[in-house]
Amino acid sequence: MDFVSISVNGTELAGPAEPRNLLVEFLRANGLTGTHVGCDTSQCGACNVLVDGKLIKSCTAFAVELQGRSVTTIEGVAVGGALHPIQRAFHDYHGLQCGFCTPGMIIAALALLQENTKPTEDEIRAFLAGSICRCTGYQNIVTAIQAAAEQMESGNV
């Protein structure tokens, strides 16, 4: 058993972990159940998180690999109880139905808008290649991300 310490959403999350424990398992075992396990095969992106600002699938990294790193999960996206503009847009534009993929979609959208503040529809769809939704058909997810991008650009949030 190793001891793992990771900064999650700005707070130190520390605890015992076996080397085989995936990052998503470590997060969920420590009460952060917003990050979902969908396929567990690196396909679906329900487990998306940011590590040092970069999008990764937390089902395909071991917690011990991320010792000392900084992780952002869906629980860290809203600030001070107010929804992030991306979360607000998913609500306003009905970018979810069952909601299982939503944490991963929001995190993916966050990663996209950090590197590209004005993505085209094609760029959004390409970026979501590794994030699967079985309900919406993606149309409203794309619309929500476009709306969030506009709001974030205009500072009107």
Binding site: S42, G45, N48, V51, L55, T60, L112, F127, A129, G130
Partner: peptide
């Protein structure tokens, strides 16, 4: 290659 998350690892 793959998708953005895979490319970051």
């Amino acid at each position: 290659i793959g998708d953005p998350a895979v490319r970051n690892r």
